[in-house]
């Protein structure tokens, strides 16, 4: 490769990578198609869309900034309880504004905890995120006059969307379209973010957190911003989940949810935007069909799958797809931004 071509290609790749690719409308067309094709399964569809949104929020922190957290459900739960408590106690039940509030509260909790926790690394950070979430869960349990305790709050009186569209539990058409629109807006936001210089600096933190201060990057502050935005989106996911289901319970805050979303993202492929989509759909469809009938076999299969991902497919389904694609088109330029290799732990 000549000097000139190498440089020009790299420049073009960087200049073009944020462009919308031809296949990118596809997921949205499929989502709309689902709406018309499977009117009986819109409840499940809504659940999947919310989960994608939640996984997307985690991707920002985990896939781009490289922070492993076991406590991301904290923000989902905080958002869900914001919506739930406001509605249940008759304080506020307008969907759009209470959803915005859920995002703001999630972000605020993210900012507060992020400023304190993100100074630590490794096991300590893992434990701190886990304990913070568990603390919130216990607090939710204790404050049962407000939160309904273990049983949660049900039959939330959510007002009609835009004053016109009812949230019907039996025919969740409103929910589905509402969640789809919110997911789309959040996706556009996250997509813009990860291709920006800010997103590039997050990948720098992921690839080598020790080098970043040596290029003058205020790492704690940048991580706190990333964590806050991610927590805000997770809060929105939780809030919209509460609205769509008209209930909220402690499961929204639990380790189960936090671990599951991590698994989904790893399954789909982290640091790839669409990994959240692929992972959430693959996981939820599989578990929908298997976990009810063969719960133990499902757990066994999931365990094997995780081991295989960790050992052989660090970048999940999308990573495998990319490898195949690259084999087919040998001279394809580098897909910049996404983690390609597993990065070894930096030397001490």
């Amino acid at each position: 490769m000549s000097e000139y071509r190498g440089g020009a290609q790299a420049r073009t790749a960087l200049a073009r990578r944020h462009r919308v690719r031809a296949w990118e409308p596809l997921p949205w067309i499929v989502a709309l198609g689902f709406f018309f094709a499977f009117p009986k399964h819109l409840g499940f569809g809504t659940e999947v869309l919310v989960t994608i949104l939640f996984a997307l929020s985690l991707d920002l922190v985990l896939g781009y900034a490289g922070i492993v957290t076991l406590g991301h459900a904290a923000f989902f739960g905080v958002g869900a309880y914001t919506v739930g408590m406001l509605a249940k106690h008759g304080l506020w039940n307008e969907p759009l504004t209470s959803l915005a509030l859920a995002g703001i509260v999630g972000a605020a909790v993210g900012l507060g905890s992020g400023l304190v926790l993100l100074r630590t690394r490794g096991l300590t950070l893992l434990m701190l995120t886990l304990c913070t979430m568990a603390l919130l869960e216990e607090a939710g349990n204790l404050a049962h006059t407000w939160t309904g305790g273990f049983d949660g709050l049900d039959s939330l009186p959510i007002a009609p969307l835009l004053g016109r569209f009812e949230f019907s539990p039996l025919y969740p058409t409103t929910q589905y379209l509402y969640v789809l629109v919110v997911l789309f807006l959040c996706f556009v936001f996250v997509r813009t973010l990860v291709y920006s210089p800010f997103g590039q600096s997050l990948t720098g933190i992921r690839e080598n957190i020790l080098r970043m201060p040596a290029v003058g990057a205020p790492v704690p502050r940048r991580l706190a911003v990333c964590y806050t935005l991610s927590a805000g989106i997770a809060g929105i996911a939780g809030g919209i989940w509460a609205q769509a289901n008209a209930y909220v319970n402690l499961g929204t805050l639990g380790l189960d949810r936090a671990a599951t979303v991590l698994i989904m993202l790893a399954l789909g492929g982290r640091g790839r935007l669409y990994g959240a989509f692929v992972g959430a759909i693959a996981y939820m469809v599989l578990s929908h069909f298997l976990s009810k009938i063969y719960p133990t076999a499902w757990q066994l299969g999931l365990g094997l799958l995780l081991v295989v991902i960790a050992l052989f497919a660090h970048n999940g389904i999308l990573g495998l797809g990319e490898t195949v694609w690259r084999r087919l088109r040998v001279s394809r330029p580098l897909n910049m931004g996404a983690p390609q290799h597993r990065t070894p732990n930096p030397p001490l």
Binding site: V307, L311, N345
Partner: peptide, 28 residues
């Protein structure tokens, strides 16, 4: 041994997977 130099996330996923396998096997 294959994962000593891997990322924390891969270690977490691997060991969670192992736990699931243990739990499911004992249950079965």
């Amino acid at each position: 041994a294959r994962l000593y130099r891997a990322t924390e996330l891969d270690q977490v996923l691997f060991t969670i997977g192992l736990v699931f396998i243990m739990i499911a096997s004992l249950t079965l």
